[in-house]
Design a binder for these strands. Structure first.
Length: 550
RNA sequence: GCCCUCGUAGCUCAGGGGAUAGAGCGGUUGCCUCCGGAGCAACAGGUCGUAGGUUCGAAUCCUAUCGAGGGCACCA
């Protein structure tokens, strides 16, 4: 029995009690779903609900009275062995081992699909993340979004959503010009321009362009040539880094294309016609304050060039035209000012601002010897995605970035990284998975097979705990998707791994010495394999491997 | 000045109205005669930044305040 199943059963008990006139509760006070929780103390049963406390006020009845009404009905739920009323009115439910244990077999049979859901089926989501400018390699900040964004995409998919991973490739405008000028300067052996980019990668790219086009410096517009080739090379290198990191985008969208195919122009006409674009001081402004922004935004500058937001608006329209219901943007905290403007842009076009969802993630800081370190190219403290992967490997990098809430700043200690000392919980989880495999191998050698299954045999306290956390896994995925918080998955895997290690310590799968193989051994093998399955499922949602040996 | 996020164990962080606030790392002490010790058990360690408020109940929600980080362009 999973917590969801119990929750559904309790919800219908409550409804029955109301229908039978045993309780009078206003309809709007009845929860659609009665939440059950795993109590902290085992003395409080397997699952608990505070529904009686919540209904006391709207029903106008003391909570313990409500609990008493529900107690008998809950006790009649198949698989429930005991229902206690505790404290102010908690209902503590104990499930019998046979009902709880059935989950082990169900998980093994569900395999890779255990935990998946169809709650988001039919939703087309465009998830845009990373979108780093092609003027240099992806550094730590972008690496965090690559890990979190890709996991989020996988989690959405596990809930049945149709997800497109998209990278907005910003190849239009000033930054690119600086990049081109920096390449040109490097090629000529001149120092990097004041507002340009330095670093070894600039030299490397300049050299590569030179070797591809030896007479480049004498062509009509060398800077343009460096721009075109340089962007392509940088782009290829970014894609390669992402691929090595296990992140492959479905669409790499070129900002330039919006300007080349006239989408921006068409859109501006549309906005002018709608009256949401007005002229002032020689520029064209979007009336974004009318839609919740804190100031109006220039869309066409007085020099006649489009401002950045022009591309954003056209891009959003393009996404909607491609049929996405929800456009999610993952941005760093340094871009939080965009939230209002992106939503305003959508609204100005007559679309629903709720189609735009912006996830803001806090910064990644480097720390050395306990003091924050500014990332600086000159000081050699820029850490790129490739650096991180080289030092700790993809699994550790992805896991350590995905296990934190995006709301919190994270500090990455250079010393810890370079020591490669693995204080990373990914190993704790991976080790648990490898251990399930080792136990499986030993079981096979000892002749223990998954022939018989006796759910009631899983009666040890560590087994009941392990079954409970396995049962919570699908709900954790649903929550992770609903809150857009992949770190919940990682945290729950750590909980499962802990429960597994404790179980391993207390309960043997293969018999001791020459003891005979019994159904207890066979049943435990099901549980062991179920744990391995759930850990593998969860790790794959994080883009982390589930090794059979370490 | 205005806006966003954070403040929880020595450190890094979970905890999105419930019972005695948790994990990893670090510290102390135990556990290898049998499925992997990258593990397990026990102990130590907390005014949940501060002050009010809502509630039967607040680390959690609201307000104020202090501290940290990040924003507030006819830059992209």
């Amino acid at each position: 029995m999973t917590p969801e199943e119990l929750s559904a059963a309790i919800t219908s008990c409550l409804k029955d009690a109301v229908d039978a006139g045993e309780l009078t509760v206003p309809a709007d006070a009845l929860p659609r779903e009665v939440r059950v929780e795993r109590p902290k103390s085992r003395e409080h049963g397997d699952w608990a609900t505070s529904i009686a406390l919540q209904l006391a006020k709207p029903a106008g009845v003391p909570p313990r009275k409500i609990a008493e009404v529900l107690q008998g009905r809950l006790a009649a739920i198949p698989g429930v062995s005991k229902v206690d009323i505790a404290g102010p009115g908690f209902l503590n439910v104990t499930v019998d081992a046979a009902a709880a244990g059935g989950l082990a077999k169900a998980i093994v049979e569900a395999g890779a699909s255990y935990g998946t859901n169809t709650g988001m089926a039919g939703t087309r989501i465009n998830l845009e993340f990373v979108s780093a400018n092609p003027t240099g390699p992806i550094h730590l900040g972008g690496t965090r979004w690559a890990a979190v964004g890709d996991s989020l995409a996988r989690i959405f998919q596990s809930q049945g959503a149709d997800v497109t991973r998209e990278y907005y490739f910003n190849d239009h405008g000033n930054q690119i010009d600086r990049f081109a000028r920096s390449l040109l300067a490097s090629a000529k052996g001149e120092p990097a321009p004041e507002d340009g980019y330095g670093g070894a990668y600039i030299e490397d790219i300049a050299k590569e362009v030179m070797s591809n086009t030896p007479d480049i410096l004498s062509c009509a517009d060398p800077q343009e040539e460096f721009r075109a080739q340089g962007v392509e090379l940088m782009f290829a290198s970014i894609r390669a880094s992402l691929h090595e990191f296990g992140v492959d985008f479905d669409v790499y969208f070129h900002e330039n294309s919006l300007f080349e195919d006239g989408a921006v122009e068409k859109l501006l006409e549309q906005l002018k016609a709608s009256g949401n674009l007005y002229a002032k001081d020689g520029a064209w402004w979007l009336n974004s304050t009318g839609f919740g922004d804190d100031k109006d935004r220039v869309v066409i500058k007085s020099d006649g060039h489009a401002a950045y937001i022009a591309g954003d608006i056209a891009y959003f329209k393009d996404k909607r035209d491609r049929g996405f219901d929800l456009c999610i943007y993952m941005l760093g905290a340094d871009h939080h000012g965009y939230v209002a403007r992106l939503k305003a842009a959508a609204a100005a076009m007559g679309d629903d601002a709720n189609r735009v969802e912006v996830l803001i993630g806090q910064m990644v800081n480097l720390v050395k010897d306990g003091v924050p370190l500014r990332m600086s190219k000159r000081a050699g403290t820029v850490v790129t995605m490739e650096d991180l992967v080289d030092i700790v490997g993809t699994d550790a990098a992805r896991y350590s970035l995905a296990r934190f809430s995006s709301d919190s700043n994270i500090d990455i200690d250079l010393d810890v990284l370079t020591k490669k000392s693995n204080e990373n919980p990914v190993f704790y989880v991976q080790y648990a998975h490898a251990r399930t495999c080792a136990v499986g191998r030993n079981a096979a050698a000892a002749g223990v097979e998954r022939t018989a299954f006796d759910a009631a045999a899983l009666s040890h306290p560590t087994e009941s705990e392990l079954l409970a956390v396995l049962g919570q896994y699908p709900g954790v995925l649903t929550q992770a998707a609903a809150f857009r918080e992949p770190h919940r998955v990682a945290r729950h895997l750590e909980v499962i791994a802990g429960a597994y290690h404790r179980w391993y310590d207390a309960c043997r799968v293969t018999p001791m010495g020459d003891d005979a193989v019994t159904d207890v051994n066979r049943t435990r093998l099901w549980l062991n394999d179920a744990v391995g399955q759930v850990l593998a499922n969860g790790l794959s949602l994080l883009g982390v491997s589930a090794p059979e040996r370490m």
